[in-house]
Amino acid sequence: MADSHDIVTAELAEFLGAATPEAWVDAAADPAALPLMLIDHANCEKKAASTALAMLFRYEEHEQLTERLSRLAREELRHFEQVRRHMRLRGIEWQRVPASRYAAGLAEIVRRNEPGRLVDRLIVGAFIEARSCERFALLTPRLDDELGRFYGGLLASEARHFQHYLELARGFAGDELEARIDAIRTVENRLATEPDTELRFHSGPPA
C-alpha cells in the first residue's frame, strides 16, 4: 500500500502535468549553486507570505479565505526564517537576487476583473506551491543530510498549502475551475520546463 508521501507526490504530479526537467535538478543540486538557490528560496518564502497577506487585505470580507491566508502567511514567514538559519550556518551572506520569469509569467494570465481575479490568484498559488513541493522532493536526496531533512520536512507543509489554495479556488470558481486550471497549467508548464537564462528555484533549466 502506498504511504501518504507517495499519495501526495502522485497528486502533485497529476496536478502539475509536466515534470521538472532533469537538467534543472542537476544544476540546482550542484554545490556551487547552493548559495544562489538558498537565497532565492528565502525570497520565494518571503514573497509567498507577502502574497497571502495582500490577498488577506484585499478579500477581507471572506472569513474562511482570510483565516486560511493568515495561517499560510505565518507558515511561509517561518519557512523564510528557517532558510535564513541554514544560510547563516553555511556562512552564506545575503545579496540581492533578481526573481526568475516564473512569477511574472503566471501573473500575466490572471484576469483583471472579479471574481475571476480571485479564482486565478488562488489557482496560481496552488501551482506555485505544487511546483515547490515537486522540487523539494527532487532535491532532497541530492543534498547534504541536514538540508535534505529540512527540504523533506517542507514537502509536507507546502503540500498542505497547495491543497488549501486549490480548495479555496474550488469554492469560488464553480464550473469554470477545470478550464482555468488547464489554462494556467499551460503557462506554468512552459515557464517551469523551457530553457531559462537564470537558474532559480522556480526557473526552467539553464539554457
Rank of each mutant, 00 (worst) to 15 (best):
T9P: 00
P206D: 03
R88S: 10
A99V: 01
L147Y: 04
Y151K: 09
R96H: 14
D40I: 12
E167Y: 06
A156M: 08
D30G: 08
P115T: 11
A27V: 08
L143T: 04
H41C: 09
R160Y: 11
E63M: 01
E194R: 15
Q95C: 05
L65C: 12
A23F: 00
G153A: 03
L65I: 12
H161Y: 09
D182R: 14
I39V: 15
L199W: 06
D3G: 11
W94A: 14
S100P: 00
I109D: 01
E198Y: 02
E114I: 13
L191E: 06
I92F: 07
K47E: 13
L56V: 00
E61M: 03
A29G: 06
V187M: 05
D40Q: 03
G204H: 10
R131S: 10
R90F: 00
H5V: 09
V110Y: 00
A183W: 00
L177T: 05
A104S: 12
E176V: 14
E67N: 07
C44E: 12
V8D: 12
A103M: 04
V119G: 02
V25Q: 08
P206A: 11
Q95R: 15
E22R: 15
A169K: 11
F127M: 10
S50E: 14
A32N: 04
R74A: 13
E114P: 10
Q82A: 13
D40P: 02
E176K: 06
P141Q: 07
G171C: 06
L34V: 07
P35G: 10
R101L: 03
W94E: 15
R90G: 01
R117V: 04
H202I: 06
V83G: 02
S4D: 12
L168M: 14
A10R: 15
I109N: 01
A126H: 09
I181Q: 04
T197C: 02
W94P: 01
A103V: 11
E76W: 02
A29P: 08
R142T: 00
